[in-house]
């Protein structure tokens, strides 16, 4: 066990975990915009700044909790005046970039940021890169990419064309912290990144699924034990099936061995 203090309280940390993970596990809140537990930490938004002492840290050292691995004897302070000053400047920069985001506005209220002194832009994306990373690391479609450099950085499908490799899983839209990726759903289709996909229908009841042919194919290539029938049945029908099986079991109509098959 590794011993780390957060805001003075001694906590037991697991080897290899980050300060952000440790803090979250113990109920501390550290604001962040580019972190997700299922992705590798990227350290891009810099909102999760903390002050570190001990364990060979330089004096008054500020760093991001998401990229800081715990070390024996480390002391972490979450809300020092330094932390809050720089965090607010970063938030101010983001709010100048994306002026009308409810998420950022709420954060500003929470952390007492009152005034945006910087020239306001008219963008919607805060350039955290979560969309590209989830598409790459979790979904495996690799349909999105970072383009350009510096202030010109954008996260888009390559060449800004409807992405060939997209499967309309909509993970990018789900993970986006400022909800700036539009998704249009009708009973028959999902439209995202300028491309329209047909929705699959439940093979039992015909209800529209949150699934496309492309998404199903991708999932099956990524996991060899998956079969189409595991995916193309709606929640209601699967639940019905499970319930039915359980009822038959209880009634003694089938045995456990048969369920296994």
């Amino acid at each position: 066990m590794i011993h780390v203090r957060i805001n003075g309280k001694l906590l037991e940390a697991k080897k290899g975990e980050t300060v952000l993970q440790l803090a979250q596990r113990n109920g501390y809140h550290i604001p962040n915009l580019c972190y997700h537990p299922s992705l590798k930490a990227d350290g891009a938004c810099r909102m999760c700044l903390v002050e570190v002492k001990g364990a060979n840290a330089k004096p008054n050292s500020l760093t991001t909790a998401c990229t800081l691995t715990v070390k024996e004897g480390m002391e972490v302070l979450l809300d020092t005046p330094e932390v809050s000053k720089h965090r607010n400047t970063i938030l101010e920069m983001l709010m100048a970039l994306v002026p009308d985001s409810p998420v950022l506005t709420k954060m500003a209220e929470e952390y007492g940021l009152k005034e945006i002194r910087l020239a306001q832009g008219d963008e919607v994306c805060i350039k955290c890169g979560l969309c590209v990373r989830i598409c790459d690391e979790v979904v495996g479609a690799k349909a999105l990419a970072m383009e350009g450099r510096g202030t010109e950085t954008t996260f888009n499908p390559p060449f800004n064309e409807p992405p060939e490799r997209c499967v309309a899983c909509t993970s990018c839209a789900f993970i986006c912290p400022v909800q700036c990726i539009p998704v249009k759903k009708t009973n028959d289709s999902i439209t995202i990144w300028g491309r329209e996909f047909d929705r699959l229908k439940c093979t039992r009841c015909g209800r529209a699924l949150d699934l496309t042919e492309e998404h199903m194919a991708l999932m099956m290539t990524r996991s060899s034990h998956l079969k189409p029938e595991d995916l193309n049945v709606c929640d209601v029908c699967s639940r019905k099936e499970v319930l039915g099986t359980m009822k038959s079991l209880v009634d003694g109509q089938i045995t456990l061995e048969r369920v296994g098959k």
Binding site: D42, G43, A44, C45, R46, M47, T89, I90, M93, L94, A96, L97, L118, A119, I126, K127, G129, M146, G148, R149, G150, T151, E152, T153
Partner: peptide, 22 residues
């Protein structure tokens, strides 16, 4: 530097943009 910043982190990318404007 604004042109050459990679654009990954907020302080460098947006800080330089704001400085350049001012």
């Amino acid at each position: 530097l604004k042109e050459e910043s990679c654009g990954k982190c907020t302080p460098c990318r947006e800080g330089l943009r704001a400085m350049s404007e001012i």
